[in-house]
Nucleic acid binder design. Structure first.
Lengths: 147, 147
DNA sequence: AGATATAGTACACCCCGCTTAACTAATTAA
DNA sequence: TTAATTAGTTAAGCGGGGTGTACTATATCT
């Protein structure tokens, strides 16, 4: 397995470069929107979950329901998420992104995409095609192994 | 340019999946280490910069020197970074990761790498090789365009 | 040498997000 | 129907991390 070592090394370098960039972009996003790490975290989870509840948010983030409730309240004030009573159990709330919230988070994803697209500019179209294939494989694999 | 549209779409999906995962791992890392976003941010910058100063940290993070100084102080207390007088200009401090700090942040990068390595398990070796090539290209491009 | 600028720190103060604890309202169990 | 449970909110208090200001110590300009 001679290529195994190289694979590890290649991935490590990519991870390092990408994490660094991720961190920078993420901080920029927080500064621009004025949102905290927790707030962005909640919005991202809502993108993925669609509709969820306060305690589910709290559970996923590893904080108390009180904390989750407060965080949700702030985001409702900002008109980024919508909080309505669940019809079947009026104790629980249905949380969903508002249009404004969705646009905001999409912009964050867009920014990250744009960066990678920019990297493509210095590559040949053969190389670009290979990267398309590779990322497609990785994305599929990630979605499959998502527990 | 028929492949141009697809390229955009592939990158967008990858970005979304990866950001979501990034966020989760990053939060886990902060919880495990007990470090804040800012603190991890500083450590990451030190990994990249090697040796730097308090005001450089402040400048990069967009905070005042006072804030940077306090943040550095906390990390020094935790024995994650080392603060010594610069020999040429005794006003400035040389900031560097300690062994402990370096190990910690390497573990973070390692965790991210391990995730991608895990994705490889469901792929053929041909596919793996293609991904190696693709990530190598992307890493190189990223380092080249790093302003 | 004396004035000015620069790097970093100390302090007072403020905001944010967390926790615990007490509470309300709705649901389920006896 | 009453008791117990569950979902969520509210309030008080704490700590982290930010600012502005004042300060110390070193370096630089004239």
């Amino acid at each position: 397995m001679q290529s195994s070592k190289q694979l590890t090394e290649v991935i490590r370098e990519w991870s390092e470069v990408f994490m660094q960039r991720s961190m920078r972009d993420f901080k920029r996003f927080m500064d621009e929107t004025g949102l905290s790490f927790s707030q962005v975290n909640i919005l991202m989870r809502l993108v993925h979950a669609g509709i969820t509840s306060v305690s589910e948010i709290g559970g996923q983030m590893g904080v108390t329901n009180a904390a989750a409730s407060q965080a949700v309240e702030r985001l409702v004030q900002l008109d980024l998420i919508e909080r309505t009573e669940a019809p079947d159990d009026r104790r629980t709330k249905r949380l969903a992104l508002t249009q404004k919230g969705r646009v905001l988070i999409e912009q964050g994803i867009e920014a990250r995409s744009k960066w990678i697209e920019g990297l493509m500019d210095v590559l040949t179209s053969d190389q670009q095609n290979m990267i398309i294939s590779a990322l497609t494989l990785l994305t599929d694999a990630a979605q499959k192994t998502k527990e």
